[in-house]
Design a protein around this nucleic acid. Structure first.
Length: 170
DNA sequence: GTAAGGATTGGC
DNA sequence: CCAATCCTTACT
């Protein structure tokens, strides 16, 4: 199965977040080799989106979000969890999609633990990386679109935007 | 330098 | 409900 075309990542985060469920993350590095079907995503859409880290502007942490779509934005939260995001859009359009679930693994912290993702993947380009990439399986599962979680601080309208996508069969 | 809080999880 | 646990950001 071919690696997803680079153009796929250049769309806006909401569009990409809707298309990711059903696709496979393929990760291969030594003792961690695997294929994981994405089941849940959340879109974070640029500096205007108060829930998006880029709403603080360009900082050391958010720098990778300003890169071209296809790069990984990995950050550490609550002193114990890695979060995995796929950057989307053109250069200087800070958007990303949080991977909240893969088949049989629910929760973004559990996803990174299952895949062995850590800070060393921050900035990795899925278009060229030899250890992690995306494959379009052609599956397009039915989705529920509901508000994002854990972002009450963002206020309206951001807290109510239905930018969390989860496969119906869960 | 200091302080506040977090795109979560697991345990009580 | 709440602690864990440390990084990022904002402010002095």
């Amino acid at each position: 199965m071919p690696r997803t075309a680079k153009s796929f990542f250049l769309g806006d985060a909401v569009t990409v977040a809707r298309m990711l469920p059903g696709m496979d993350i393929v990760i291969g590095s030594g003792d961690h080799c695997g294929r994981y079907m994405i089941t849940e995503t959340e879109a974070y859409l640029g500096e205007e989106d108060r829930a998006c880290h880029a709403s603080k502007g360009r900082t050391g942490r958010t720098e990778v979000m300003y890169m071209e779509g296809g790069h990984l934005y990995i950050y550490f939260i609550y002193g114990m969890h890695w979060m995995m995001n796929i950057v989307t859009g053109m250069i200087n359009e800070p958007q990303a999609v949080l991977i909240r679930g893969v088949a049989s693994v629910s929760g973004p912290g559990r996803v990174t633990r299952a895949l062995g993702i850590d800070g060393s993947y921050n900035g990795e380009d899925m278009n060229v990386s030899a250890r992690i990439w995306l494959e379009d399986t052609g599956r397009r599962p039915a989705l529920r679109a509901i508000p994002r979680v854990g972002i009450n601080y963002a206020g309206e309208p951001w807290v109510s935007m239905p930018w969390r996508f989860i496969t119906e069969d869960k």
